[in-house]
Each structure stands twice: as C-alpha cells, then as structure tokens.
Simulated scan of single mutants.
Amino acid sequence: MAQQALPVRTARLGRALGPEPTSVSGVVLLLPGGEESSVRRPSPMMATASVRALGRRLARTGRADGLVAHVVHYRYRGWNGGEAHLAQDASWAADEAVRRYGDVTVCLLGYDMGARAALRSAGHEAVNSVVALAPWLPEQDVATPAEPVRQLAGRRVLIVHGTNDERNDPELSFRLAARAKKANRDVCRFEVHSDGHALYQHRHEVHALTEDFVLGALCGRGFSRPVEDALQAPPPLGLRMPLATGFGRSLRR
C-alpha cells in the first residue's frame, strides 16, 4: 500500500496582538505548545491560549519601542521526529517577520513543545533572543542524539522551568542550558519553585520576568538586577536562579 502523503498546509502568523506601532523594530514570535507526534491541524484557540496573554502584555508594554507580537499558527500539532515541523514553522515565521517588517530583530518565545521549536530555530539571522518556558526536551539515549545548542551562540537565552513540572523534566532543561552556557555566556535559567508545568501558580512573576528579558533584549531597555546577575553568574548558579516571589512588582527601569 502506498504511503499517504501529508496534506499540503502552510504556517501563518496571527494578527498582531494589540495596536501595531507606527514603526516596527522588534518582533516577538509566540510559539504555542504542541504534541510529540501528530499530523492533525492545531485547534486555533486552544493551541494559542498558553502564549496569547503574555503576548498581549509584551505588545502593550513594548509598543512605544516599536515592538509587535504575533502568534505562530503551525501546520501540524506534532513535532514529528526528524521532520521537526514546529521548528520548521518557527524558522518560516522569522522569515515572514523580516519580509513583512524589513530589517527587524526577532525574539522567539515558546512554551512546552513551542519552547523546543524556539531553541532549535534560534540560528536564524534575524533572531537575537530566545525565551523557553517549560520546554519539552527529549531524553538522550543511544537512539536520540543530544539536542543541538550551537545555534544559540550569539543569542540571549532565557529558560524558565517549574521545579514541580511533572510533564517536562526540569533537569533536562538544566542540562541543555549547561551545555549552551559553555559556548554562550548570555544564557540564564530561572527555576520557579513549587510551580508545575503551566507555571500558573506564579504566573505574574513569570510574565514579569519574561517582559523584563524581552524588552531588554529587543528594545535595549536594560535588564533588571536579577536577570543581569543570572546572565553573569557562572554555572550552575546562573542556571538554577530562583524566581523570587513578587518579582516585577517593585522593579524600576
């Protein structure tokens, strides 16, 4: 029996979240979670719920600096092994941002499987920063090579993971961060103690941390002291930085 071909689909960018600035200089591409293996079409609303609120916040606070945020709508729900469909779509989205807005810098911001796509696609020439929230990463074994990190060189990278994540092992993101840090000093990782996969318990702090990092990386506003300390600290300190309760409530830029 002949193998059935996958349906021809195209990825797309959702509408800009909030009013677009008059002149765009930075683009945040929001990469939702996905599944390990599936060729079904993603459900638009359910798939984007994990990143939409954060994207609206970034669009609002960064608009004066020319920042715009778009959700990436994937062709398929699944990563699908060596096809790495979600990473392919992330790279396409970076190309589309440049085509649409010209000479802009891009931050790839992903959650769960979308975080893996963000990390994997960071080598795109327009990308200067990556945010990976609760990233899904495969266990390394004889049949599964280590997740690549060379593409992260020259990018600012923030990884955030709940210590009680029962879906995606936080130790795997620590190991990836440790390997990336050897080639790129601009890598930091924050641990959200007692929080789970959805990072809901400390949602305010996670969103404030992400905002601080993105506006610093894309808009040149400068990082808060905790982020600066995490970037400067040698491993493992800067890769196991605890996210303080109340982060963001008293920050002054």
Rank of each mutant, 00 (worst) to 15 (best):
V71I: 14
W79L: 06
Y76Q: 05
W79I: 03
E139S: 13
A93K: 02
L158V: 12
G162I: 05
D103K: 10
V131F: 04
V98W: 04
A115F: 02
V71F: 01
E96P: 01
R100D: 06
V72Q: 02
N80P: 09
W79Q: 02
V98T: 15
L133M: 11
V72T: 12
E125C: 09
V130E: 06
Y74D: 06
N164I: 09
G78F: 05
E96V: 09
G110L: 00
R155I: 08
L86S: 02
G82F: 13
Y111L: 10
W136S: 01
P170T: 15
L133R: 01
A94E: 03
Y101E: 04
W79K: 03
N80L: 15
L108G: 01
V157C: 04
Q151L: 10
G114D: 01
R99S: 14
A126P: 04
Y74G: 06
D165S: 14
P138T: 03
V130A: 09
E96Q: 15
N168Y: 02
V130I: 14
L133K: 04
R156M: 08
A153K: 11
L152V: 04
L108W: 03
H161D: 08
T163A: 04
R120M: 09
A126H: 06
C107Y: 07
Y101P: 03
A132R: 00
L133G: 02
C107T: 11
V131W: 00
A122Q: 13
G123C: 06
H161L: 07
N128Y: 08
R99L: 10
D95Y: 10
D165C: 11
A97V: 03
R120G: 01
H85L: 04
G78P: 05
E166D: 14
L137W: 03
T105D: 11
